[in-house]
């Protein structure tokens, strides 16, 4: 190796040292940041997913229970109620618990509206609906 090459190498390593330390730091930081981001995101997402699922699952349990309670009766009014709770149950079964679901807001609103309709068909007191909406609903 010639003297010039050695000098070039030395000069390169001096120039590179600056970047090398920075890049090594960055790499370590990125790894740690990824881990922290996953945990922070997970904890945050969990609360949101839980909130919405709690509300929607409540509607589902409510609808299914009324479905079985109403099945004994076949007269006109009961049939209309039965139909409504079945539609509510179907809407929820089709509802995907995916945070990036395209029509999330619309689908949730449709389910809530159907639930309110079911409550009114069943003559469920309004304060019950309020309690449910107050405890279970969420803003996006």
């Amino acid at each position: 190796m010639s003297m010039t090459d050695e000098n070039d190498d030395l000069f390169d390593s001096v120039l590179m040292a600056d970047d090398r330390f920075r890049i090594e730091g960055y790499r370590e930081g990125f790894e740690e940041g990824t881990r922290r981001g996953m945990i922070e995101g997970h904890n945050h997402g969990m609360i949101h997913g839980a909130k919405l699922s709690s509300e929607v699952s409540f509607y589902y349990g409510f609808a299914m229970t009324w479905k079985y309670l109403l099945q004994k009766n076949t007269h006109g009014k009961a049939r209309k109620r039965l139909k409504a709770v079945e539609v509510l149950g179907d809407l929820i079964q089709k509802f995907p618990h995916e945070p990036q679901h395209e029509n999330l807001q619309e689908d949730v609103e449709r389910i809530r509206a159907k639930f309110r309709q079911v409550c009114s068909l069943l003559n469920v007191p309004m304060n019950f609906c309020d309690y449910v909406h107050g405890s279970g609903s969420q803003d996006f």
């Binding site: 922290r36 981001g37 995101g41 997970h42 945050h44 609360i47 949101h48 618990h97 995916e98 945070p99």
Partner: peptide, 24 residues
Amino acid sequence: GINAGKEASLQAGFNQGYRAGALR
């Protein structure tokens, strides 16, 4: 690096946590 790593992983973590919370 920490900031970039966080930015890159927050959404994935959120999605994962959201599904877990919903199931729970």
